[in-house]
């Protein structure tokens, strides 16, 4: 009897030590950090983005009196650069690098009855804050698929409300909406490992990438996803440019 327990103890210890060694080993690899950079462009002219009538809420309408608001499904810069595209490593990351959640706490603000940013890239379990800068009540209502392990919630934020702090359990592109202002629509892009979101020039930089061969995925809320193979040398830079066709 006791022999069996001894064996179980030794076996468990060996398994754990192996796991530990594996994780530590990967952390050592991660030290030679490289990056992946590139540009995301839209093929052809920018699709027309409908204007938003905020007449329902005088506060919102007034905030946009001189600067009419438009839908943000495609945000295209001067040179065809496509903003709000989340680029992340979908294959090739070691377990520990994929499990690492970013320590920064990004902010998703409700400002002038729009979401700033429109798309917030996050890692699994990364904490983020939802704030309001508006003098009108919003309700912040993300709509994940509960089958993924992300649970939907719905909280009000009247003027001056304290930030809501949350995180997500599983990778998923989660739409978020305000039921009070039905035009307000944004995304929590929850991914594993290092990622970046393109700016209005379409450029992005994923930093803290360990050396390796990767598949990189670019996600745009309406145009879908594209993938590319990228190789990053220790401390070096890989490159991946994407071109999306509007749908």
């Amino acid at each position: 009897m006791s022999k069996r327990y001894n064996f179980a103890a030794v076996l468990s210890a060996v398994v754990l030590i192996c796991c530990g060694a594996l994780i530590l080993n990967q952390n050592v690899n991660a030290a030679g950090e490289g990056k992946i950079t590139g540009t995301v462009k839209l093929d052809g002219p920018a699709p027309h983005m409908k204007g938003i009538d905020m007449g329902k809420d005088p506060y919102c309408a007034k905030a946009h009196a001189n600067d009419p608001a438009h839908l943000e499904t495609y945000v295209v810069g001067a040179d065809g650069g496509l903003a709000n595209v989340v680029v992340y490593i979908s294959e090739g990351l070691s377990g520990s690098a994929a499990a690492e959640s970013s320590a920064t706490e990004p902010v998703f603000d409700q400002k002038n009855c729009m979401y700033t940013p429109h798309v917030l890239g996050l890692t699994v379990e990364q904490k983020f804050k939802v704030t309001t800068s508006d003098q009108t009540t919003h309700n912040i209502h993300p709509l994940p698929n509960p089958m993924t392990g992300n649970i939907p919630w719905n909280q009000s934020q009247p003027p001056g409300a304290a930030p809501v702090e949350k995180s997500w359990k599983a990778p998923e592109m989660i739409p978020v909406q305000c039921n009070i202002h039905p035009w307000m629509h944004g995304w929590f892009a929850v991914v594993k490992g290092p990622h970046a979101t393109s700016d209005t020039k379409g450029t992005y930089t994923i930093s803290n990438v360990p050396a390796g061969n990767y598949t990189v995925t670019a996600w745009q809320e309406a145009a879908g996803t594209q993938t590319q193979k990228v190789t990053v040398a220790a401390g070096g830079a890989g490159s991946a440019n994407f071109t999306f066709k509007p749908k």
Binding site: A8, A9, A13, L16, C19
Partner: peptide, 23 residues
């Protein structure tokens, strides 16, 4: 020893990746 072996065993099992949910 018995306690420890059970505990370590449990930790080793929990450390396995969780399957994803489907319909």
């Amino acid at each position: 020893l018995r306690k420890w072996s059970l505990l370590l065993g449990a930790v080793a099992i929990v450390a396995l990746p969780m399957p994803s949910w489907a319909q």
